[in-house]
Design a protein around this nucleic acid. Structure first.
Lengths: 261, 261
DNA sequence: GTCTATAAAAAGATAGAC
DNA sequence: GTCTATCTTTTTATAGAC
C-alpha cells in the first residue's frame, strides 16, 4: 500500500513545479511565462523539467487542473457549512473565494479569449471534465437561486455562470489592488456589489424610465474627484532586476551605438 | 491649403494599415498578431510596412489611439442628442457602443493585465492623453449620475469607471456570441442588465439578510437546463487554412508521450 | 517607398554524457 | 533523472537593390 519512495519524491517534485507555474501564470500569463524561468525558479535544469512534463502546455494544464480542483474543494467546504444556507449566499461565498485567489496572486490568469492556452486546454480531457463538473455544480446553485427569486430568473443560467466565471479574470480587481489605496475587503465588497447588485443606485429604476433622478438623493461625499486612470501599472524593471523578458528582437540596437562598443 | 498628393496617399495607406491591425488585434490579440500577417493582409512587403510604422508596437499603438478617438466621437454623438438626457442614459449608450464594437470584432483586445502591449502604451503620450480625456469625460457623467442617485453613490467613481472599461474586454460577450444561439440585442440586453442591475432578482435584498427567498417567486421556464460550457471555442484551423501561427517550436516529433514512461 | 533576402534573437524542445 | 550544450522554428527588424 505504501507508495514507493521514488514515486513519492517524484510527486513532491512535481508539486513544487506546479506551484511555481501557478504563480508565474498568475503573475505574467501563459505567453510571458518561459520554461527557462520555471526551471530557474524551481532550481533544476530545463531538460530535467521536461522529464516531468512533456511540454510548456502540459505545465500550464497541470496548473489549471489544480486550480479547478481547489475550486471544487471550495464548493465542498461551503456546502459543509453547518446550517444549510440559501444558494445565493453560497454563490456569494464562491465569488469571494475567486476574488481572494485572484487578489493573492494564486489565480493562473485564464486564457482571456484566444490565448494559446485555450487551444491546449480544450483538448485536455482531465481539464475539460473538471470544468464540466464545476459548471454543473455551480449551475445547480444558480438555478436554485433563480427559483427562489434571489437571482434574476430572466437571465439564462449560462449568462449567470459566465458572469461569475469572468470575475476570475476581472481586470478591475488588479487595477484597484494596484492603486494601493484600498483594503482587500473594500475591494471584495465593491466587486461583490457590482456583480450581484450592479452599478445602479436607489433612484435607478425610476430614473431610467422617467428620465429624471430622485430629487433628494444623497450626493456623494466629494464634489468632483479627479479620476486617476491607473497610470503605468507596468513595473518598470527596477535597476537591479532583469530587463523585461520576451522583447523578441531588437537586433541592431535602437539607437545605433558604435559597433566596437 | 491642399495637402500634397503624396501626403494624402500616405495617409490613406496608413489608414488601411491601421484598419488591418485593428481587426487582427480584435481577432487574435497583440501577442498572436504577427507583422508578416499585417503586411500580407494589407498587400505590401513587410519592409515597406516598416517605412510607415517604426515597430509592431507602433502599429498597435496607432490602432489603440484610433479606438480611443472613436470612443470620444461616440461620446460627442451621444451628447449631441436633441433632448438633454440624464447621465445614466448616456452611460448606457456608451456601454452599448462598447459592446457593439466588441461584438463586431472592431475592439482591439485590450492588454488584459500584463500584456506586452501595456508596457508600450503606457509610454505613449498620445495614447495616455486620449485615455485621460476619455476618463475625465466619463468621470463627469458618472459623478453626475451618482449625484442624481441613478448610480450607487457608495461606489468610488473609479470603481464605476473601471467596471465600465472592463466591458471592453468582457469575455462573456464573446462566449455568448460564440454559442450562436442568441441575437446581438439579447446579448446587449443581458449584459446591460448584469452591468447596471447586477445578477440579483427581486427577492434578493430580503433573502440575503433573512436567509430565505420569496415564496411565490416566479420559477424559470426550464427546470434544470444543462449548462454548456462553451466547448472548444478555438477555431481548429480549417482544412485549407494556415495551420495556426505562433506555435513556437516543435522541431522533432511530438509522439513522445508522457515523460514518465 | 517598394521589393527580396537576410540578420538577430528568443524560446521551446532535445541529445547525450553521467 | 539530472545536467550542459545544442538544435529548430518563429518572429521582429533591417540591408540594399531599384
Amino acid at each position: 500500500m505504501t507508495t514507493p519512495l521514488r514515486e513519492r519524491m517524484r510527486l513532491v517534485r512535481e508539486e513544487a513545479i506546479v506551484d511555481v507555474v501557478n504563480r508565474l501564470l498568475a503573475d505574467k500569463g501563459y505567453d510571458f511565462m518561459t520554461v527557462d524561468e520555471v526551471a530557474a525558479e524551481v532550481g533544476m535544469a530545463k531538460a530535467s523539467l521536461y522529464k516531468h512534463f512533456a511540454s510548456k502546455e502540459a505545465l500550464a494544464a497541470a496548473a489549471m487542473v489544480r486550480v479547478l480542483e481547489r475550486a471544487l474543494a471550495a464548493m465542498d467546504e461551503i456546502e459543509r457549512a453547518a446550517t444549510p444556507r440559501p444558494a445565493i449566499e453560497r454563490l456569494h461565498d464562491m465569488l469571494r473565494w475567486t476574488m481572494r485567489t485572484l487578489y493573492e496572486g494564486r489565480m493562473p490568469s485564464l486564457p482571456a479569449q484566444n490565448s494559446a492556452l485555450r487551444t491546449v486546454l480544450t483538448a485536455d480531457k482531465v481539464y475539460v471534465n473538471l470544468l464540466l463538473r464545476l459548471s454543473d455544480r455551480l449551475g445547480g446553485w444558480i438555478t436554485e437561486a433563480q427559483r427562489d427569486g434571489t437571482v434574476s430568473a430572466s437571465l439564462p443560467p449560462e449568462v449567470v455562470l459566465f458572469t461569475l466565471y469572468a470575475r476570475a479574470c476581472d481586470p478591475v480587481l488588479p487595477l484597484l489592488k494596484a492603486s494601493g489605496q484600498y483594503t482587500p475587503d473594500q475591494i471584495y465588497e465593491w466587486l461583490s456589489q457590482t456583480c450581484f447588485g450592479g452599478l445602479h443606485g436607489t433612484a435607478a429604476g425610476a430614473a431610467l424610465h422617467a428620465g429624471v433622478g430622485a430629487p433628494g438623493a444623497a450626493a456623494p461625499a466629494q464634489a468632483g474627484p479627479r479620476l486617476a486612470v491607473a497610470p503605468a501599472r507596468t513595473r518598470s524593471p527596477a535597476p537591479g532586476e532583469a530587463p523585461r523578458k520576451r522583447r523578441p528582437a531588437s537586433p541592431q540596437a535602437r539607437n545605433r551605438k558604435s559597433p566596437t562598443g
